[in-house]
Design a binder for these strands. Structure first.
Lengths: 211, 211, 211, 211
DNA sequence: GATGAATGAGTCTTCATTCAT
DNA sequence: AATGAATGAAGACTCATTCAT
């Protein structure tokens, strides 16, 4: 039965990819050698190369897998009929990311930094990563539209802009947590809360510039 | 006199560092070879190695230099007697970063991504980078205190939290601009403005969780 | 089966080591480059490096191998029930060394000089070489004890001292043969014979000093 | 006055050569770099290169100097009207070498090993070293003739052979002292004394072989 | 003459990938 | 289908020597 064979194939791929991610987090993308991945996977050189054409393919697949996993995690949060208000949603997303990192031992935040860096010089990765983040941003804009529909947010706002602002907060949380640490999802949310309550908060950049 | 003047030495160092940064942006930190840097610098192998002990040293210095330059750029914005309100300040910072990138042809945003990635496995870099970002975050918290002093922000807020939230926005803008593009400082500011005006905005994380 | 047999592995190691020894004798230890050894071995760079960690390892192994081979050669001479008297034994040892050098084309005498030099600054080599020579010296002292047992040598003599004197003669023969030439084992033996028959030979150092 | 200048030149040369010998003893001939020698000499690169054409020249001169110094030391011992008998002479020579090593901090024994090794692949050095050792051997043979003249040694002996045997002992002492240690001049002398008093000592190699 | 900055050929070593078995 | 030995191109770095000042 080819079905079992296929399952086995998938299991092997996952085994290699997980080994690769462990290596990547430990050594970085470039400093990780194929022997590193091969040893960590417990397979033979030839076996690994029968599942992936080359190292670039493994990087690509490992990062893509992470993006897909994250996507699965975020879908229920973003595609719900009654999304939480901005602050709550942000927290939910950031906590999901934190939880994901804890779950499998792959620190998604740190893996993301590796991916962003690699995407600078790897067109294929840049492309798949771009697709992922644009979809994420669009989903956030979609939530913003839902907020407008339910009257939580003014209908004159540009939902795209809101999506971009929210994405910036999420990504910035990821960087900050990975590089400095000492940030919790709630910290961000709370800080934002106060910043936004500034009298004449002037959050509209144009006003700021004019003033 | 074959003894080179300090100015000339510094000029040479800068020459190498700038060449390195150009290479890094083009090829990434690891894919950049020493011959790449050497050729780009216009010097000889030996000359480059007389200014920097090894490749790691060049990476270190190139990123450190960028941090120092950025720091110089941000100081006047962050250490002023009458800082702009939150939205305006954010815009100012992001625009400074954008302007810096345009100035010398070194896209600071993309260089930052490279640095964050490298910092994962390079303790020395992680240390100097951590110092820089913590100082940045503290400066932002300092501005928050100033806002509290002038009554722009409620005195019950934690300025540290505000610093973290603002830093997240700045870093997130950098990532988003580098990876997806199609974000302007004002976009973020505007999106945030609307998100924050959400009725019962629920930006306080705890409320969000409870809800 | 790509899994190589132990015999083949050993054959490869020997192949590399013999190539290395040929190079070392031609160029010296340091002036021999890895490409030299690699080409002489007939293998590829990677293959050589899969058998030996680095150049130092090859030096170490090449010299150690020589010591082991020499040891095998000397064992039957030194560990016999009825050793020849001093002069005969010396000749036997020196001739064994000469014969060994002729056998495989590796001039053991010249290789020894290279090793002694390298041992000055290479602790690991110094250690293994020290072990070898101390064992050799002890074996010579052992023969001296046998001589004392059979009455060939006075029982009041210190066998250790005899071992040291004999070792000096052997090593000195090696140096002289390698550096100046025109010495045969018998020459040494004969010269010693006459020198020792000096009336009031005064070979006891203390007497010499007093005189 | 060119005389002072010449003296200064010689002093400089000595300064460089002494620095070089210190380096050579510490690092070996090849692992010593020109910067090593330059720094140890306290002069500038250019200065050192104005006194010696290249590194090979420094090696050559440093070793030659050592040979000359040793020669000066041995002359009075070897060219005397009433030389000590064999055992005493040997001790005198070995003690002179030991004393020389202690005097200036240049361990002549270890320097000799370095030189022998280098002589394998350096024709010029091999030549000057050969000249030195042949002269030494001839001087020893000369002493043997003197011993024959005064009746200490049988007139039927070949003084050349005696020279070779004595040289072997001296060189062997040097090697043993440098590589293993725990040998004193007297030890050798004493050991030899007992070995030679072997009944039917059979020191004549031919007899040994026949037996 | 003196200086030391600059040169660049030459070394060791790694590692992605292939392919005989 | 699986294995892991073998390949060799490519990279980081050193250091003897030169020569402009």
């Amino acid at each position: 039965m080819p079905i079992i064979s296929n399952e086995k194939r998938d299991a092997r791929r996952t085994q290699i990819l997980n080994a690769a991610r462990r290596c990547f987090l430990r050594e970085g993308l470039h400093a990780t050698t194929m022997p590193d991945v091969i040893q960590a996977s417990g397979l033979s050189t030839g076996a690994v190369y029968s599942y992936f054409k080359n190292k670039e393919d493994i990087i690509q697949a490992a990062l893509k897998t992470s993006m897909v996993e994250l996507s699965d995690l975020l879908q229920p949060i973003l595609h719900t009929d009654s999304p939480l208000p901005p602050g709550g949603l942000l927290c939910q997303i950031m906590e999901a990311i934190v939880r994901f990192s804890a779950r499998d031992g792959f620190d998604l935040k740190r893996l993301a930094l590796l991916g962003w860096s690699e995407a600078q010089r790897n067109a294929r990765l840049r492309s798949s990563m771009g697709t992922f983040y644009i979809a994420f941003r669009n989903d956030l804009a979609g939530v913003a539209k839902e907020w407008q529909r339910t009257g939580i947010i003014d209908s004159s706002a540009d939902p795209e802009d809101i999506g971009k602002a929210l994405l910036a907060l999420v990504l910035g949380f990821v960087v900050q947590a990975a590089i400095i640490g000492e940030v919790e999802p709630e910290t961000i949310s709370r800080g934002l809360h106060w910043a936004c309550r500034a009298s004449e908060s002037g959050l509209k950049g144009s006003e700021a510039k004019d003033g």
